[in-house]
Amino acid sequence: MTTTVTARMSALARAELTLLGRSRATIVTAVLVPLLLPLSVRPALDGMDLADAGLTVGTVILPAAVGFSLLFAVYASLTSAYVVRREELVLKRLRTGELHDREILVATALPATAIGLTQCVVFAVGGAVLLDLGAPRAAHLAVLGVLLGLVLCAALAAVTAAFTRTAESAQVTSLPLLFVSMLGSGVTIPLEVLPDRVASVCELLPLTPAITLVRGAWTGDLSGYEALGAVTTALAWIVLAVFAVRRWFRWEPRR
């Protein structure tokens, strides 16, 4: 009996969600860390001249919270999931059934991306209430930024997993992107307060477009040209990541 693509992917996504819930380390990484890290940004803001940059505490902390969710709930947790499933031969067994390769990768990513999306919605509501941000001036930019960030982080997780030997080493191989994104993509330090030359380089980092679009949704200062540039950069990274996955992703344990 042949099943539909939706049925196959839904079944795999449910199984992945069950496995995710059984891993305490994954729950901490995907759920608790993104919720707690934004609190660490607040003390650092006291030394920044946010007013001159056209920013407020809210327009810094909210995009930071979204960034932490994308990095930890999606990228870091999904990198570990891909590696663990591969080393346990789960991916290899799945390929012998009806599921196509892209269906396996996407379905495996669905629970993590759903968690990330839920957190972003919670942060947006919380920011409107607790940080007195109100509704975004350009809601479509926030939606676009989050969706691009989710797709990119999921793709980058598969790329990182391709070069990761064990589940333990996944905590190490994911660190470079985590650190670079937190420091240079506007997560903890807004690009608006950086020197122009440094900011121009940081604009090309993978997660920068998502943070730029989310922040611009609330500040209303992002021009159409700047938004288009951010979207173009994000799409370019997504294309590169998908190419890397197709070229180097491994379906059997690395020995």
Score class of each variant (00 low, 15 high):
residue 3 T to G: 06
residue 116 G to I: 00
residue 164 T to F: 04
residue 75 Y to R: 06
residue 243 F to V: 13
residue 165 R to G: 08
residue 245 V to P: 00
residue 98 E to Y: 10
residue 25 A to T: 14
residue 46 D to F: 00
residue 242 V to G: 00
residue 30 A to F: 08
residue 118 T to K: 01
residue 71 L to M: 14
residue 235 L to W: 05
residue 73 A to V: 04
residue 239 V to F: 13
residue 140 H to Q: 11
residue 59 T to L: 02
residue 38 P to K: 03
residue 93 R to E: 13
residue 46 D to Q: 14
residue 192 E to Q: 11
residue 118 T to H: 05
residue 160 T to L: 00
residue 27 I to F: 11
residue 253 P to H: 06
residue 132 D to F: 09
residue 186 G to T: 01
residue 215 R to A: 03
residue 79 T to P: 03
residue 194 L to E: 01
residue 11 A to C: 09
residue 66 V to R: 00
residue 21 G to Y: 00
residue 106 V to L: 14
residue 119 Q to M: 09
residue 35 L to R: 11
residue 227 A to Q: 08
residue 26 T to L: 09
residue 221 D to M: 11
residue 180 V to R: 05
residue 78 L to W: 05
residue 12 L to P: 06
residue 177 L to K: 02
residue 105 L to K: 10
residue 228 L to W: 02
residue 29 T to G: 00
residue 241 A to Y: 10
residue 244 A to E: 08
residue 72 F to H: 03
residue 96 T to G: 10
residue 101 D to L: 15
residue 221 D to R: 04
residue 77 S to L: 04
residue 62 L to S: 05
residue 41 V to C: 03
residue 178 L to P: 01
residue 91 L to Q: 13
residue 44 A to R: 03
residue 228 L to Y: 00
residue 131 L to S: 06
residue 73 A to M: 00
residue 61 I to A: 04
residue 172 V to L: 14
residue 44 A to H: 08
residue 9 M to H: 01
residue 89 L to V: 09
residue 160 T to H: 03
residue 152 L to Y: 11
residue 102 R to H: 14
residue 21 G to P: 04
residue 98 E to H: 11
residue 212 T to Q: 11
residue 81 A to V: 10
residue 214 V to W: 06
residue 177 L to M: 09
residue 172 V to K: 01
residue 216 G to Q: 02
residue 26 T to M: 11
residue 14 R to W: 11
residue 99 L to A: 12
residue 12 L to N: 05
residue 236 A to F: 13
residue 14 R to V: 11
